[in-house]
Structure formats: C-alpha cells, structure tokens
Amino acid sequence: MAPKILIIRFSSIGDIVLTTPVIRIAKQQVEGAEVHLVTKKVFYPVVEANSYLDKVHVLNDDLNTVIKALKEERFTHLIDLHNNLRSRKIKKALKLPTKSFTKLNIEKWLAVNFKQIHKLPNIHIVDRYLETLSEFNVKNDQKGLDYFIPEKDRVDLKKLPQTHQNGYLAWVIGGSYTTKMLPSDKVVEVLRRIEKPVVLLGGPEDAENGKLIAGKLGSNVFDACGKFNINQSASLVKQASKVLSNDTGLMHVAAAFNKPTLSFWGNTIPEFGMYPYMPQHPERSTIMQVADLRCRPCSKLGYKKCPKKHFYCMKLIDADKVVEWVSAKL
C-alpha cells in the first residue's frame, strides 16, 4: 500500500514556508506517496499553488469537522510539525503511526532566562522538521525552501510607479511583534541615504507605519504595505534585487527565492534555528544584530514593547553597515 501522508502545520506564514522541504521530499523520495497538509484557512494562500501537495485541508474554527474529513481520507502516516493541543487532538482521533516535531521549549527557556544559548542545537529547524521523515530513509536534497505563486497573483511591475519598474529593493517593515521590528525612525535614517528605488512591504497592520515612513521620504520609496495580498507580496519579493527584512514570514519567502537578504534580529536570535535557509547559497544571507547584549534573547516570540524599555537590540543596529550592504554589488 502506497503511503498516504498527512502533514500538520496550522500557522504561520514563515513556519509554513519552512515546512516545504518536508512536503517536497516526502512527495519526491517516498515512492508512490500521496501528501496532504492541514493548515488554517487564513494561511491557505501560502500553499494553494504548491505542486507537491495532493490536497490541502483547511481548518476553520470547527476542529471536529476537520477531524471527520481527515478520518475519511484513511491516511497511513501522520507528520506533526506543529505539536500543540489541536494537533494532538487530531493525532488522538486518527490513531496513526506518528512522528512529531520537538519544539525545544526547555532549551529555548534556558536561552531566554539564563542566556544559555550553547544549549541550543546547532541545526536549522528545516533539518529538525526533516527528522520526522526518518523512517522513510529520505535525504535532504539541499534544494531549500519552496514558494509557488499562483498566476493570478503574479504582479506586473508596470503596476508600480515608473521609478520602480526597472528594479528595486524590497524592505519588509512588518513583524509579528514590535520587538522583532526595526523602528521606523531607523528605517527612515537608512532610506534617506539610499538613492535606489525601494518598495516597503507588510500587511494591513503595517499600513500606518508604511505611510509614516514613506511620507518622510521622496518618490524613490513606494509604500506597498496592505496594498497586496501575501502571494502578491511574495511576487514583489521575487522580483526585487535585494531584500531587507525583520525576522518575519516574508524573510523566509525571500529565502525560498534565494534572494540576497539582510535580516534584522531584535529580541530573537538566529540560534533558535529559524534564520534564512538557503543551503545552495548561504552567502546570500546576511545577519544584522547587536551582539553581546546581556538581555538578548528576551523572548522566543516577542513583545509589544521592550521589557527593558531601551530597545537597544534594534535601536543600536548600525545604519552605516546597512547602507554598505545595500550599496555592495551582487
């Protein structure tokens, strides 16, 4: 009987993009495998065009309805890459051979509370995800992340201002928490020294900040925050010459396209294992962080405001080095 594999990852954008090597390798290296994914409805667009998936199951608020539908599929294997209460309910209901992703909560707690960063394994989360396929004797194909943009969401650059139609930098200004976002005044400080066209990217929640930043600058900065959906934003990332980004979902989308990426790290640290994953082009990823701050990391997720009230981890980012990276030839 050919394996029929269910992969669970409910959220969010970056985490789902980081599961794509598991999806691809299961489909390509497990003979005859049928691969399904269950994810939240709001994140369905991230995987809707993924050609390695045979089917995507969408979770709304009613978990029982989803479980009923999953039972009807008669899966042979279950891969849990979320490992929370909801995913455990699915595992209990389906009663299948299961491999679950280990979250390293203890190691991260030690890193946050006692700064014992050395306790964290020196392994990217993608490789930890792939361990869940160990029984199939698969190998990491080193092809990195995938992101498939539906044709309907591919942005024609003629829709951008004429100043941006022949190339631009993409700057992802958003983030899930304030302490993971470079302050707007720091962004403005850098952009005032850059003459290249720049597109600001973020969701509807970043629209106000994008308008604030663009309003202080000239026509070389186009504010796209909240004006494009996730796949359209991914299309703009794909067509950018370089990408600057906070530790957020579009950073991983940029990695999927192997874009030269400068990532800013505030309360989180790359040692958590979720830095840009580009195994074929690791030189294209540049990490920007303030080293040797005693208060970092202060959280494995983030806060609405700096618990120390100084926000040095972002405010002390060296603007000169950012400008230097932007100016460097590809």
Rank of each mutant, 00 (worst) to 15 (best):
N229M: 07
L217K: 14
N267A: 13
K242D: 10
S285Q: 12
P183L: 06
L301W: 10
V38W: 05
V199P: 02
Q162L: 13
F228L: 10
L316P: 05
L120M: 10
E31Q: 15
H77K: 14
K27S: 07
Q28A: 07
K119Q: 13
I16L: 13
L212C: 07
E131N: 14
V126E: 05
N220A: 09
I287K: 13
G249K: 13
D320R: 12
V38K: 08
R88N: 13
V198H: 03
F272Q: 14
V38Q: 02
L96E: 08
S233H: 09
S233V: 01
Q232G: 06
K27N: 02
G249V: 03
R128D: 00
Q289T: 10
Y129P: 02
Y44M: 09
S219Q: 15
K55E: 13
D247A: 12
S219N: 14
V172P: 01
L191Y: 09
P276I: 09
G14L: 05
N267I: 14
V35Y: 06
Y275K: 07
R74C: 08
Y52N: 15
R9P: 06
T102V: 10
V221G: 08
T268A: 08
H57C: 09
D292N: 15
R294L: 10
D127F: 03
Y147T: 06
V47G: 07
L37C: 10
D185F: 11
K4Y: 06
G218M: 09
K103E: 06
D15Q: 11
D153G: 00
K259H: 03
K95G: 11
I230Y: 03
G174K: 11
E189P: 11
D292M: 02
L133W: 00
T98H: 00
V30T: 05
D247W: 03
Y168K: 00
P21H: 10
P97V: 01
K329P: 03
A111C: 01
T286I: 04
L244T: 04
D206C: 12
N113P: 04
H82G: 11
I106N: 08
L120R: 13
G210C: 06
F264D: 02
H310P: 09
N231T: 01
I317R: 06
K143G: 07
V30F: 00
H57R: 15
I317Y: 02
K115H: 15
Q239H: 13
Q116I: 09
M314W: 10
A254S: 13
F10R: 07
V58P: 01
S245T: 15
V46I: 13
V190F: 04
T20G: 00
Q28V: 08
P270W: 01
F101V: 04
V112Y: 08
L53N: 13
Q280V: 02
K196I: 04
E135I: 12
V46S: 08
A234S: 00
I106L: 12
Q28F: 00
Q289A: 14
T20D: 05
V198Q: 03
S219R: 11
M251S: 06
S219E: 15
K68M: 08
